[in-house]
Design a binder for these strands. Structure first.
Lengths: 150, 150
DNA sequence: AATCAAATCTGCAATGTTGCTCATGTCGCA
DNA sequence: TGCGACATGAGCAACATTGCAGATTTGATT
């Protein structure tokens, strides 16, 4: 099937696959030239196949130095679900810490959200008075909030 | 990135970063020479990227000894500072709640950040075991984090 | 003082470089 | 044969770049 939309999708996915961090920056006209198609076709493919709920974020800029940035984001619910299941009364601080790092590196949370979370999480672990049950409940509620608001 | 405007922006930001007080004074033609571009390009970048609502104030003067002064204004810090000062061991839940609402309504935090904060704050107030001192410390550290990451 | 020249920045118009939207058309397949 | 996915181009919106006339400011000259 030499359907142009498929070619474009493949091309972008191949570019993405070469990147470790799941981010590429492309120029629309470059792709259009390479594939030999109308530039608007690129926009079409992006809007139909690189959607948020398929795990992509697309940002762009026009004018000189224009670009299209495509970021592949892990399936959110799975990640959060996984993390939620991992958290129990024996979960160490460093584990939670690395969860936050993971979320940050995969653009599932912002810098500021990460800082906010780290602050709260550190407090929870340092607290002399907070019970382990309370801490677990707090951590889970944070992850749940993120999950529901993504 | 062969985009001159970006270079100029970076240059100015770098100059600003070297200053402790967030103020720089530059000469338009100097920058233009350094970057090798038309002087009016500097004006363009200033008017599009160093705007008031991005937290900058630009003053300038023409003529001999003319200059461009760029000031990075931490307007938002005032709000956070104010809130920080208001928080003590007698601060009620509803007050904190309305602070979060204020931040949200003024677009200083996102929906998700607000949800995150409310979650944590509610936990802190509901906790049977957390001491008042711990709670105050937590609330302040949250606001401080936001302040530093804005 | 009044004037002029030089050094600066301002404002704006003209033009170039991209990406986006939308109306419209095509094509394969159930 | 009708629907939905695919394809295209025109016109538009957003961003960048440049040049030039004009406004300001300083300082030197008359």
């Amino acid at each position: 099937m030499s359907n142009i939309a498929d070619l474009i999708e493949e091309y972008i996915l191949r570019q993405l696959a070469t990147k470790e961090d799941g981010k590429v920056e492309l120029r629309r006209t470059d792709i259009a030239d390479k594939i030999s198609c109308a530039p608007s076709q690129i926009s079409y493919v992006l809007s139909t196949r690189f959607t948020q709920d398929k795990g992509f974020v697309v940002e762009s800029r026009r004018g000189l130095g224009g670009y299209i940035r495509i970021v592949q984001i892990p399936l959110k619910n799975l990640v959060y679900q996984d993390m939620l299941e991992k958290i129990n009364d024996k979960t160490e601080f460093v584990e939670v810490q690395s969860m936050v790092r993971y979320l940050l590196q995969h653009q599932m949370i912002s810098n500021r959200e990460a800082a906010l979370m780290m602050q709260v999480i550190a407090s929870a672990y340092q607290s002399e008075t907070m019970t382990v049950q309370e801490r677990v409940r707090l951590l889970k509620s944070i992850l749940l909030t993120l999950k529901n608001f993504s």
